[in-house]
């Protein structure tokens, strides 16, 4: 096993934060959405497909975190070609990981609550599906901000394309 420099080790923390926090938010959110959807399906079997859509929505935050973590691992030398990442770039990597991780945490939980509520609203009134989907998708924006900032930090912080 190659010996890691401090900068790369810091990037590893960033990668962990990215996928860990985003995954936590996404998991909680998806759990809430799934619980609501199961309740809806228990009352109306036709809700299965729509419940699945609402449950799948809070998955995206984990995907953003996962992507940033992979990029950090590849460009910091943990995966693939070994690179001596400077300490400052390692700190930038923590920032990038925290950006997508915490944004994903809040966004995932918020989206889960809305998705669960939307599943309840749709089973009460079928016409609520499109509107429920729009409300649920709104919470995605925070995760997108976090993801964009993480990418920008990596690009201008010397990790990506440096």
């Amino acid at each position: 096993m190659a010996e890691l420099v401090l900068g790369t080790a810091l990037a590893a923390i960033g990668a962990g934060l990215a996928v860990g926090m985003a995954g936590l938010g996404s998991g909680i959110g998806q759990g809430m959405a799934a619980a609501g959807s199961v309740g809806a399906v228990a009352e109306d079997e036709d809700m299965f497909a729509r419940g699945l859509i609402f449950t799948a929505l809070p998955e995206t935050q984990a995907i953003y975190g996962f992507l940033i973590a992979i990029l950090l691992m590849v460009f910091s030398g943990i995966m693939g070609e070994a690179t001596d990442l400077p300490i400052t770039a390692g700190l930038v990597a923590i920032g990038a990981g925290a950006a997508v991780g915490f944004a994903g945490l809040g966004s995932g939980m918020g989206q889960g609550i809305t998705a669960s509520s939307a599943a309840g609203a749709v089973v009460e009134d079928e016409d609520m599906f499109a509107r429920g989907l729009i409300f649920t998708a709104l919470s995605e924006t925070q995760a997108i901000y976090g993801f964009l900032i993480a990418i920008l930090l990596m690009v201008f912080g010397g990790i990506l394309g440096g």
Partner: peptide, 16 residues
């Protein structure tokens, strides 16, 4: 958020 968790399943059924 966790305090809301136990209510998601029953509330969906109730709203149905």
């Amino acid at each position: 958020v966790l305090s809301l968790y136990p209510y998601t399943y029953p509330n969906a059924r109730v709203r149905a």
